[in-house]
Simulated scan of single mutants.
Amino acid sequence: MIVFRDPSEVPADFGPSVVAIGKFDGVHSGHRAVLDRARVDAATGGARVVAVTFDRNPLALLRPELCPPNLIGVHQKIQLLAETGIDATLVLRFDEALAGLTPREFVEHVLVEALGVRTVLVGSDFRFGRGGQGDPTMLAELGREFGFDVDVVADVRAHAAGRRVSSTWIRELLAEGDVETAAKLLGRAPSVWGEVVHGLKRGRELGYPTANLSSECEGFIPADGVYAGWLIDEGSTDGLRPGIRFPAAISVGTNPTFDDVASRQVEAYVLDETDLDLYGHRVEVQFTARIRSTVAFEGVDALVAQIDADVAEVRRILG
């Protein structure tokens, strides 16, 4: 998949294209339905499939007090979009200049001139242009003027729950620690991504050395607790060291037994690995199932006994 960071980077002969526009926060099942439709629309006619998205939630600039935490960061978003099989992603920097474009200017500059758009796919709640003036109806009017079609894709709904699949719902589930239901809506395991950094080394002292993720990691961290999951070592940027997937017991929280961790952290113990050196590596930590909530133990012996039980449960869950 090709990644463009500005419309000016798109080659002049790039089009025609079928474009899906959205925040794509989480690249969940609803987003994938839009992208799947785009791929079907582009199956004939030699068009490329392009996702147009943003480097941040527009609310981070327009109404920061209303902006929810992101489910994924830009790195994760690009990776997940690439896995859908689309041809390119245009990641627009959402700044004052972009926010100030009128709906017509956005369509003309981004969709028509840069991408040679043939069809645009959006959700029913799509808004664009200065002050959110544009909606699917206006987009269709501009499409008739500039010669492209507009396809409004219906929501993907979980009928038993009576809700549409949305980033908001997934955030609610993760905040409760319900990673299994969140995974069903995402179509994949929820995860965080970042660099492994040095911690207090307490896990090593207890016989369970952990890989500690930087506080700057990308992704929505689920509720405090202990989880079964996977650690994926991303591999080296030069491709000489391939990515490796390890089963892991994952802890999220502030370590209340010792009460000396200032902020929430994600740390993963790779099963049966005591000499694994991941410092400085970029890794993804995937959450498969929540085992228990975080509690304070009376002494190290009680803590180690519980960790023993946690690891046994993780091993059972992951098979």
Results as ranks from 00 to 15, higher is better:
residue 3 V to N: 02
residue 4 F to S: 13
residue 5 R to Y: 10
residue 7 P to C: 14
residue 8 S to I: 12
residue 8 S to C: 14
residue 15 G to Y: 00
residue 16 P to A: 03
residue 16 P to C: 07
residue 18 V to W: 09
residue 26 G to S: 11
residue 29 S to W: 08
residue 40 V to E: 10
residue 50 V to F: 01
residue 51 A to E: 07
residue 53 T to V: 09
residue 54 F to P: 07
residue 58 P to F: 03
residue 60 A to N: 14
residue 62 L to W: 15
residue 69 P to R: 10
residue 72 I to V: 04
residue 73 G to M: 01
residue 73 G to N: 00
residue 78 I to W: 00
residue 78 I to E: 01
residue 86 I to F: 14
residue 90 L to R: 12
residue 91 V to M: 09
residue 93 R to T: 09
residue 94 F to D: 02
residue 97 A to P: 15
residue 99 A to R: 14
residue 99 A to D: 11
residue 111 L to M: 06
residue 112 V to W: 04
residue 113 E to C: 13
residue 119 T to K: 03
residue 121 L to R: 02
residue 124 S to C: 04
residue 131 G to Y: 06
residue 131 G to D: 06
residue 132 G to H: 08
residue 138 M to R: 14
residue 152 V to C: 03
residue 157 R to K: 02
residue 157 R to S: 01
residue 158 A to I: 02
residue 158 A to T: 04
residue 163 R to G: 07
residue 164 R to G: 09
residue 169 W to N: 03
residue 170 I to C: 09
residue 170 I to A: 03
residue 171 R to D: 11
residue 177 G to N: 06
residue 184 K to R: 13
residue 186 L to E: 00
residue 188 R to Q: 02
residue 191 S to M: 04
residue 198 H to F: 15
residue 203 G to C: 05
residue 207 G to H: 06
residue 209 P to S: 13
residue 211 A to W: 15
residue 220 F to A: 06
residue 220 F to D: 04
residue 224 D to L: 00
residue 226 V to E: 06
residue 229 G to W: 02
residue 229 G to K: 05
residue 231 L to T: 01
residue 238 D to W: 14
residue 239 G to I: 08
residue 239 G to Y: 10
residue 250 I to W: 09
residue 255 N to W: 00
residue 255 N to Y: 06
residue 259 D to V: 04
residue 260 D to G: 15
residue 265 Q to M: 04
residue 268 A to P: 12
residue 268 A to W: 05
residue 279 Y to Q: 11
residue 285 V to M: 00
residue 286 Q to E: 01
residue 288 T to F: 15
residue 293 S to K: 07
residue 295 V to S: 14
residue 296 A to M: 03
residue 298 E to W: 10
residue 298 E to C: 10
residue 300 V to S: 14
residue 310 D to K: 15
residue 313 E to A: 01
residue 314 V to T: 15
